[in-house]
C-alpha cells in the first residue's frame, strides 16, 4: 500500500469520527443552554463547548461574543473552521475520493451521499427545532460509514489504518472533553448548586453517549470520580481511553504481523495501554487529573506522529 493511501485512510477515519464528535458536542451544549437558569450561563457553556471542540481560538478570531446561532453555525457549517462538521465531511470525502480504489462501494457511497446531502443543507433554514434532527443525521451517517467499513472491508492494512484513525481521534476527543470539564469533576472543590453539577456531569457523559450506560455499570448516581474512571479506565465503555487504546493496540499488532516489522509506535502504544490497564482512579486524582490528561494527550499525539513515520505517510 502507498504511504499516501495509508495517510488518507487514517485521516478519512479521523474526520468521520471528528464530524460525529462535533455533532455530539453541539448537541450537549445546546441542551444545556436550553435549561432554565439564573442569570445568563449560556455564554459560559458555549465557551467550554468550543474549548472541548478545540475551536475556541478560531471562533473568537471571527466573532466577538458568544451567540448561540453563531456558535452552532461555526461548529456545523463554517468552512473557515477546519473542524466544523462540514469541513470534516468535505475532508473525509476528499480523502475517500483520493483512495476510491481502497474503499468498498458501500463505504464510498455512504461517504459520498453524506457529503452531497449535508452540503445541500442551507444553515439559515435550520430552525432551533430542527437542529436535533440534523445532529442525529450526522451521527447516523458516521455510524453508517463505520458499519459499511466493519461489514465490507477486508481485514488488511486498509482496515487497520482506518481503525487507527478512528480510535486515535476518539481518544483525543474523550481526553479533550475531560480536560475542559475537569474542574467539574474535581471532588475537592464544591460547586455552587448541586443541581448544576448534576447537569454538568450528565453533560460530560452525554457528550460521549454514556449517560445511560453509566447507570448500568455503576448502579448509582453520578459521582465525579466514577465518571472519570468510566471515561478513562473502563474497558467496556466504547469511548473510554482504555478501550480506544485496546483497539489501537490490536490494529498496530495486526499491522506488525502483516508487515513483519515493529516500530517505535508499538512501544508507545504498549506503554500507554499499560498505564490505562494498570491505572487506578484514586492515584490519578492524587497526582492530578489535569496533569494525567495532559500527559495522555501528549502521548496520543506522539503515537500519531510515530505511526505516520513508521508507515511512511509522507513518502
Amino acid at each position: 500500500m502507498l504511504g499516501r493511501t495509508a495517510n488518507d485512510l487514517y485521516w478519512l477515519a479521523r474526520y468521520v469520527e471528528r464530524a460525529e464528535n462535533m455533532a455530539r458536542l453541539t448537541e450537549v451544549g445546546y441542551r444545556i443552554v436550553l435549561l432554565p437558569r439564573d442569570g445568563d450561563g449560556t455564554h459560559e457553556e458555549w465557551r467550554s463547548t468550543l474549548a472541548s471542540a478545540g475551536c475556541a481560538q478560531g471562533y473568537f478570531s471571527k466573532f466577538e461574543s458568544l451567540n448561540t446561532r453563531d456558535v452552532i453555525n461555526y461548529l456545523l457549517f463554517d468552512f473557515s473552521n477546519p473542524s466544523s462538521v462540514k469541513s470534516c465531511l468535505a475532508a473525509a470525502r476528499r480523502n475517500g475520493r483520493a483512495q476510491r480504489t481502497s474503499l468498498t462501494r458501500d463505504m464510498w457511497e455512504s461517504l459520498n451521499s453524506a457529503w452531497i446531502e449535508f452540503s445541500n443543507i442551507d444553515p439559515a433554514s435550520i430552525s432551533a427545532g430542527e437542529l436535533p434532527r440534523v445532529l442525529d443525521w450526522v451521527r447516523s451517517r458516521s455510524a453508517l460509514y463505520r458499519g459499511a467499513l466493519l461489514n465490507t472491508i477486508l481485514r488488511n492494512d486498509t482496515f487497520f489504518f482506518s481503525q487507527l484513525g478512528t480510535f486515535l481521534e476518539r481518544a483525543d476527543n474523550t481526553a479533550r472533553i475531560l480536560d475542559v470539564k475537569y474542574y467539574v469533576l474535581l471532588p475537592q472543590i464544591e460547586m455552587v448548586g448541586g443541581g448544576v453539577d448534576a447537569v454538568q456531569w450528565a453533560a460530560i457523559l452525554r457528550s460521549v453517549s454514556a449517560h445511560r450506560s453509566y447507570r448500568w455499570v455503576y448502579k448509582e448516581n453520578y459521582k465525579p470520580w466514577r465518571i472519570a474512571e468510566y471515561l478513562i479506565l473502563n474497558q467496556a465503555m466504547p469511548r473510554s481511553l482504555r478501550s480506544s487504546y485496546d483497539e489501537i493496540s490490536v490494529a498496530l499488532n495486526d499491522l506488525a504481523n502483516l508487515y513483519g516489522a515493529r516500530a517505535a509506535c508499538h512501544d508507545t502504544v504498549a506503554a500507554t495501554r499499560a498505564l490505562l490497564a494498570n491505572g487506578n482512579i484514586d492515584d490519578i486524582f492524587q497526582s492530578g487529573l489535569h496533569e494525567f490528561i495532559e500527559d495522555f494527550i501528549i502521548r496520543n499525539n506522539r503515537l500519531g506522529n510515530e505511526v505516520a513515520e513508521a508507515y511512511h505517510f509522507n513518502g
Partner: peptide
C-alpha cells in the same frame, strides 16, 4: 529504478 513509496518503504 522507478519506485513507489509504500507503507513498507
Amino acid at each position: 529504478y522507478l519506485q513507489m513509496k509504500t507503507t513498507q518503504g
